[in-house]
Design a protein around this nucleic acid. Structure first.
Length: 367
DNA sequence: CAGCAGGGGGCGC
DNA sequence: CGCCCCCTGCTGG
């Protein structure tokens, strides 16, 4: 790849609003017409402002800015929260951010598929990613949330390519949203790199990408077009350090605060509890709400007086097992439960019972 | 110290 | 993904 092409791709578009137009032009038309959604350039403040919404910036964005690529510009996302005619659903700020993120991710992913179709053998992956980022407004992508955008990566090792694909396609698994948001023109290419894509081609490309990703134990079927999040065993876990991007270790990171989780469901609970305040479980006795049903069950015991965890030594009881455990450790430290099978010691009956499930099954397998 | 709420991990479906 | 569980931190007596 010659430098001129790279210049064309990664040149001064960080200060060029034409890319914004690309993004906006390819948003659903109804949305643009209705002015539900506005996207405008935002200068990066020299220091965090208390009046500016804290848009999390991923470590890769910082490195990207240092590299002078498209991540040098952030965008101010604002949205008038009322019913969106295109989606026929109300969008809050998080939904709006996810919308932009999802579009950027899907476009990046589609470009990546096309580029891998065109050339997967030479060292053009970084060019492909740069092209994708430049043409899909990856600045927006980076501004929305932490990602492993590879546009700044100087080389194109399979691990880097995999990291990018796995990061972006986390949102791509939301096929429902993509179907609603992806008119055919959304993924069309106007340049000569455009290739005709059919399902077989995409599947082939995804097979290639998936071949770079070691399947996890819980991986879905190979017919699934979604790319699974990168498992931790993809590469040797890097030592924890200030220069290590956490998203390389744990695949699910919060788009708002950057916290990372091992499982997607944990990230979802975190976002619901901390950012969107969506707590679907309501206490019938008070105003308590929670994201976790089991937490509501425990809470209701404060109203009903149920104390199912009973001390085997005294008459103490508690509504939570951990409280009983604390009681045992403080009041009856000598009282332990010994496993008759393996000899292990346990504090509470519940701990022992849970242990027996594994201990007995293990014991049975050894027979 | 007890009670409670919430975060996060693990496991089975 | 739902559920269960453990752990931790906060608060009041």
């Amino acid at each position: 790849m010659d430098d001129s092409a790279n210049d064309h791709i990664c040149g001064s578009h960080g200060r060029d609003t034409s890319l914004l137009n690309v993004v906006l032009d390819e948003l659903p038309q109804e949305m643009c017409k209705s002015n539900d959604f506005t996207l405008k350039p935002l200068a990066i403040p020299a220091s965090p402002s208390s009046t500016t919404p804290q848009v999390p910036k991923s470590p890769c964005c910082a490195s990207s800015r240092e590299a002078g690529n498209s991540c040098s510009q952030f965008h101010d996302l604002s949205y008038v929260p009322h019913v969106c005619s295109t989606l026929n659903m109300a969008l809050n700020l998080e939904d709006s951010l996810r919308l932009i993120h999802g579009i950027a991710c899907s476009k990046l992913d589609m470009h990546l598929r096309q580029m891998t179709s065109v050339d997967v053998t030479n060292a053009s992956s970084s060019y492909a990613l740069s092209l994708c980022c430049s043409r899909t407004g990856v600045s927006c992508l980076c501004a929305v949330g932490p990602c492993s955008c590879s546009s700044a990566l100087p080389s194109s090792s399979p691990q880097q390519l995999t990291a990018s694909a796995s990061c972006q396609t986390d949102d791509l698994t939301d096929t429902h949203a993509l179907e609603a948001l992806s008119p055919s023109s959304l993924f069309s290419l106007s340049e000569k790199q455009s290739v005709d894509l059919d399902k077989a081609t995409i599947s082939q490309d995804l097979s290639f990408l998936n071949s770079l990703i070691q399947p996890s134990s819980s991986a879905s079927s190979t017919n699934d077009l979604s790319i699974q999040p990168a498992p931790q065993t993809l590469v040797d876990p890097p030592p924890v350090g200030k220069n290590i991007c956490p998203s390389k270790m744990l695949p699910f990171s919060c788009s708002f605060c950057g916290r990372i989780y091992r499982q997607k469901v944990h990230l979802r609970k975190h976002v619901m509890a901390q950012h969107t305040k969506q707590k679907p479980f309501f206490c019938p006795h008070c105003a308590y709400t929670t994201v976790e049903k089991s937490h509501l069950t425990v809470h209701i015991r404060t109203h009903t007086g149920e104390r199912p965890y009973i001390c085997r030594v005294c008459h103490y009881s508690s509504s939570q097992n951990c409280t009983l455990k604390s009681h045992y450790l403080r009041k009856h430290p000598e009282s332990k439960i010994n496993c008759v099978t393996c000899g292990g010691t346990y504090v509470t009956e519940l701990e022992y019972q849970n242990h027996l499930k594994n201990c007995v099954s293990t014991f049975d397998r050894t027979l």
